[in-house]
């Protein structure tokens, strides 16, 4: 059963990954990438890495891909321009890619990283917690790396803000404190209007004449 599930999801993963690079429409490509992430999350679940599988879906599918779709839809990507020279360079590209593939396959192919070289991983008990195992490693053995990763995120925030924040004196923005402190009298002005006959009644009267 597990083997069948594995092969189904792996097939999905490979097929959708191929579709990502062959499909013409960038939005479709993005959706195929989502499918790739889903299938690899499923494969991770089979490896008992539940936490990572869920994080993959939450972070990549939920946040990164949605952002990516936004960008793809907002930017008007000219596909014809990008594809220029594709056919002309295709033969050379195919040869280089195949040569690279053959070499990498020779090295990382079945011989070194095949199943027969590794022991079957032990099954964990039902009460085994993936999250606590990860947490214990992250906060003890890898605490230094963990902290540096946090600093990198901080740099990301600083960089993003410093690159996009632009103070312009004439922009109109909300003043929250004024909005909160506002009183009825500031917003609403009661104007006394003299009563007078309705306009259409006058018109009617004129018609009757």
């Amino acid at each position: 059963m597990e083997t069948i599930v594995f092969y189904v999801f792996s097939a999905f993963m490979i097929l959708s990954a191929l579709m990502v690079i062959t499909v013409h429409n960038p939005v479709r490509a993005a959706f195929f990438l989502v499918l790739t992430f889903f299938s690899s999350a499923a494969v991770w679940l089979l490896l008992e890495a539940e936490f990572l599988a869920i994080i993959l879906i939450i972070v990549y599918v939920g946040a990164v891909m949605v952002l990516f779709l936004f960008v793809v839809m907002m930017l008007d990507v000219n596909l014809a321009e990008l594809k220029k020279g594709f056919v002309k360079n295709l033969p050379l590209a195919v040869i280089v890619a195949l040569a690279m593939f053959a070499m990498i396959f020779m090295v990382v192919g079945g011989e070194q990283f095949g199943v027969q070289n590794f022991a079957v991983p032990e099954r964990h008990a039902a009460d085994y917690s993936n999250v606590s195992a990860l947490g214990q490693l992250l906060y003890t053995e890898y605490v230094y790396s963990f902290e540096i990763a946090a600093v990198i995120l901080l740099v990301g925030i600083v960089a993003a803000i410093s690159l996009t924040l632009r103070r312009r004196p004439n922009t109109r923005h909300q003043k929250v404190e004024d909005q909160v402190a506002v009183k009825g009298a500031d917003r609403l002005r009661v104007v006394k209007v003299e009563s007078q006959p309705r306009k259409h009644t006058i018109d009617n009267a004129e018609v009757k004449k």
Partner: peptide, 8 residues
């Protein structure tokens, strides 16, 4: 960490 700071 170094590269990100430099890009920015």
């Amino acid at each position: 960490l170094l590269s990100l700071s430099m890009y920015a």
